[in-house]
């Protein structure tokens, strides 16, 4: 089974190739960033979401190289493999979680990641201002990371959260949609 294989790969890499840091350090650092953004944008949560996504994108475009260096993975054959790889290897080695891949659309271009646990959101309570619960996607940085990382391997995707336990939903769910494959760039014409 391919799924079992990637689970094992993820486990092995996590055990052997990954330097660990204290989880609370990550959680608190990330929380501080979000809190600071909320202060900077005067609680305009749409802007905060956007900014988090952008920061994630910038992380993703580099993280993919680290991912490839650590895993020596070859290119995935199809988007289902990609999803499997993101969950069982990507999230595993960087956050030690394996979100569940589910809710595939019939054309295999869109899926959901269900986060049973989310290290970024430990200890977090959203501000009680009546808007954060409806507007802020606390872990939105993850959407950006995926977009940046996949763009580097020629996949243009769109990712957004559709529910978050922090908002009182039953699950934390991210929706990922493949928009198109990016063509190789040609060298500029000689003059």
């Amino acid at each position: 089974m391919a799924a079992n294989k990637s689970t094992r790969q993820g486990e092995d890499l996590w055990k052997t190739r990954v330097e660990k840091v204290n989880a609370e350090l990550v959680t608190l650092t990330y929380g501080t960033i979000v809190a600071q953004l909320c202060a900077d944008y005067e609680n305009d949560y749409t802007q905060v979401n956007q900014q988090l996504e952008k920061m994630g994108y910038n992380i993703g475009v580099r993280l993919i190289e680290d991912f490839l260096a650590k895993t020596s993975m070859a290119r995935c054959g199809n988007f289902r493999d990609t999803a499997d790889m993101i969950s069982k290897v990507g999230f595993k080695i960087f956050l030690n979680v394996t979100p569940t891949v589910t809710n595939w659309t019939a054309d295999s271009k869109s899926f959901s990641l269900l986060f049973d646990e989310n290290p970024l959101a430990d200890f977090v309570e959203l501000p009680d201002d009546g808007r954060a619960q409806d507007e802020l996607w606390f872990s939105n940085i993850l959407c950006g990371v995926l977009r940046g990382a996949l763009e580097m391997v020629q996949m243009s995707i769109e990712a957004h959260f559709v529910s978050d336990i922090l908002r009182g939903n039953d699950t934390t769910e991210m929706r990922v949609t493949l928009l198109r494959m990016i063509e190789d760039e040609m060298p500029p014409e000689d003059d």
Partner: peptide, 17 residues
């Protein structure tokens, strides 16, 4: 790639992406 490029170029936070 793994030990030199990723380590010293990609992970250099001050170098552009």
């Amino acid at each position: 790639y793994v030990n030199i490029y990723v380590e010293y170029v990609v992970k250099n936070a001050l170098s552009p992406a």
